[in-house]
Design a protein around this nucleic acid. Structure first.
Length: 357
DNA sequence: ATGTGC
């Protein structure tokens, strides 16, 4: 849908009529489009309402607005090839390391240099929709990246407390207003982006090491919460990855497939692709409805046979597959709008959310 | 989303 008129608001949502997009999220896109300096708002097929700003949107503006990126600056998804001899799911799930415990300088994996001099919570996954997943490549549509049957680690996490502190420092003074000193914000932002990427790599190394496997360079590592300077304008991405010749892992849920796609989005889509299935229910709705619908046992052993490591019952209900849209629909919309082409499908084997207790 | 808010 293209909505523009006397107000010159430019909003486009890349979703078919069959895709459920909450009107609150579209309203948020229009409010963002009315901000000073805003040129164009592109909603991805996983668009859903966020706190103030929509999630699953790329927003191009001559003015830099930190709140459009949000607190988890540098959040993204990386994919690491991993080789295991004979994957026994129960045994592997039990061997996952404690990713709620931060690395310390005593750890073998402790890096020589840490962006932003922020050693706190390094190597931890966080909460919410973050996860580390061992998955198997189930189908290959385009050769050259992964092969059918290959195992991968999918790491979805961000900059933890660092990005939050960067946004808070801005918000305390300027609220939802523009960055008073864009260069200073961008410098801190860039460090959070590097910190997030390092964090994902460290988690992959922690897991691979615990599972007795070798680590490899990621085949994909794309942020979906960041701002990019493009032709002198600020392209804010909030739950929207770059999709300009690069591959992106579009995450399904803890119980459904994920898709590796090749992005080829243009200006109308603000050069972006979706980052996941997108929430269909708010966390509170998901908690209430899924408590009535599922047992903990069901959610810990999913419909595709995967195991979910999650010692937090509430998080398990909030993150249940039924709280999300169908990933096939999101991918279908990306394809229909020529934003991306599927490369491979992965099926979860073991997903780590938070330590078992 | 968050060394988590009232």
């Amino acid at each position: 849908m293209v909505i523009s008129g006397a107000s010159a608001l430019s909003v486009r949502v890349f979703a078919s009529s069959q895709s459920w997009i909450e009107s609150d999220a579209v309203d948020q896109c229009h409010r963002v489009a009315a901000l000073d300096g805003m040129r164009h708002v592109a909603g991805m097929p996983d668009l859903h309402p966020g706190k103030g700003a929509p999630i699953g949107a790329a927003m191009l503006s001559s003015v830099l607005y930190p709140f459009l990126v949000g607190s988890d600056i540098g959040c993204g998804i990386a994919v690491f090839p991993i080789k295991l001899k004979r994957p026994n799911l129960e045994r592997l799930a039990a061997r996952f390391p404690d990713l709620d415990r931060a690395l310390t300088p005593d750890d073998e994996l402790w890096p020589d240099e840490i962006p932003a001099d922020h050693p706190e919570s390094l190597g931890t996954v966080g909460r919410g929709n973050h996860f580390v997943e061992l998955a198997r490549v189930d189908e290959v549509m385009q050769e050259g990246r992964v092969g059918k049957g290959d195992l991968v680690l999918i790491v979805h996490s961000g900059s933890r407390g660092l990005g939050e502190s960067i946004l808070r420092a801005h918000t305390e003074v300027h609220g939802a207003g523009p960055a008073a000193d864009p260069a200073a914000y961008l410098e801190a932002h860039d460090q959070a982006v590097r910190w997030g990427s390092l964090n994902r790599r460290l988690m992959a190394e922690r897991v691979a090491h615990a599972l007795g496997a070798a680590t490899a360079e990621p085949i994909v590592d794309e942020c979906h919460n960041f701002v990019e300077v493009r032709d002198g304008l600020y392209l804010h991405r909030k739950g929207a990855a770059r999709g300009i010749g690069n591959d992106v892992l579009v995450a399904g849920t803890r119980g459904t497939p994920s898709y590796l796609v090749a992005g080829h989005a243009g200006a109308e889509a603000n050069f972006s692709v979706a980052h996941g299935a997108g929430r269909k229910m708010s966390r509170s709705d998901a908690l209430r409805r899924n408590k009535a619908k599922h047992t903990v046992t069901e959610l810990r052993r999913t419909a595709v046979g995967s195991l979910v490591v999650c010692g937090d019952r509430q998080l398990l209900f909030e993150e249940a597959p039924t709280a999300y849209k169908r990933i096939e629909q999101v991918i279908g919309d990306l394809v229909a709008h020529e934003l991306a082409t599927p490369v491979a499908v992965t099926i979860p084997l073991v997903t780590y959310k938070t330590r078992d207790r």
